[in-house]
């Protein structure tokens, strides 16, 4: 794990074998339309899980439901054995980073984007030094020159890596990655793959990239909002 951020807190006093995230017969409906139906799975701390399926199969919904963005129509979600009530959602959000295909940087320049969270009360006293900013960027194969570039001028792949660097600076340990390798060149992709191989990170992802899928511990297939197959890599 790089030295750029605070050490992830995921394993604080918690046995590695315990379930970090448990979906138990979860159903989600949005405006009366069923998006997820009867979805159950378990992800342990440090594991990497990938959801696969056609567009509209509910992959991104799984990630967003864990963040409390969709109310449950049925079932329950447990995070560290706690039901997903408002305080638990806050706990998930403190630990989690959601990186989509086109992440929002929310600032004029890359430096401001990296510093954005440190304007909020909860992080105000932990402003990172210039060295830590550069360290985080270099860890994702980004040149320090990018710090003063305008965000509107950076590519989709760079935006994704900047968003990951920002999450690293915050010491995030749970990464929800939505097609994150799709905009990356081979070298950058390798850097991202290597970084998330660290057992300190738990990853729930949506991806079709074979390299990424091969590195994941659990592969979950979704179709029409239902889990059709759960496969553990390395198991028979």
């Amino acid at each position: 794990m790089p030295s750029v951020g605070s050490r992830p807190r995921e394993f604080d006093g918690r046995p590695a074998e315990a379930a970090l995230i448990r979906f138990d017969r979860v159903s989600v409906s949005v405006r009366g339309k069923s998006i997820l139906a009867d979805v159950s799975f378990v992800v342990k701390a440090g594991e990497k899980a990938v959801f696969r399926g056609k567009s509209g199969s509910g992959k991104s919904t799984v990630l967003k439901t864990l963040l409390g963005l969709y109310p449950l129509a049925a079932g329950r979600i447990l995070f560290e054995d706690e039901s997903l009530d408002p305080p638990t959602v806050q706990s998930v959000r403190r630990r989690a980073a959601y990186i989509g295909q086109e992440p929002v940087l929310g600032a004029e320049t890359v430096r401001e984007a990296l510093m954005l969270p440190f304007r909020f009360k909860t992080h105000r006293d932990n402003k990172p030094s210039e060295c830590r900013l550069i360290d985080a960027l270099e860890h994702l194969h980004l040149s320090p020159d990018i710090l003063d570039r305008e965000c509107r001028l950076v590519s989709g792949g760079e935006k994704q890596r900047i968003a990951i660097a920002r999450a690293l600076l915050l010491g995030k340990s749970l990464y929800l990655l939505d097609e994150v390798t799709s905009a990356l060149d081979a070298e950058s992709k390798q850097a991202v793959l290597d970084m998330f191989a660290d057992p300190a990170f738990t990853v729930l992802s949506v991806a079709h990239d074979p390299d990424w899928v091969a590195r994941c511990d659990i592969v979950l297939e979704l179709e029409g909002g239902r889990l059709t197959r759960i496969h553990r890599n390395g198991s028979a």
């Binding site: 963040l67 963005l69 959000r93 403190r94 989690a96 980073a97 959601y98 989509g100 992440p103 929002v104 929310g106 954005l116 969270p117 304007r119 909020f120 009360k121 909860t122 992080h123 920002r166 915050l170």
Partner: peptide, 16 residues
């Protein structure tokens, strides 16, 4: 919406 949710995930309170 995405920007607002990003702020929340970066540690902002609803008001922030």
């Amino acid at each position: 919406e995405n920007e607002y949710l990003t702020y929340l995930l970066l540690g902002a309170t609803r008001w922030e």
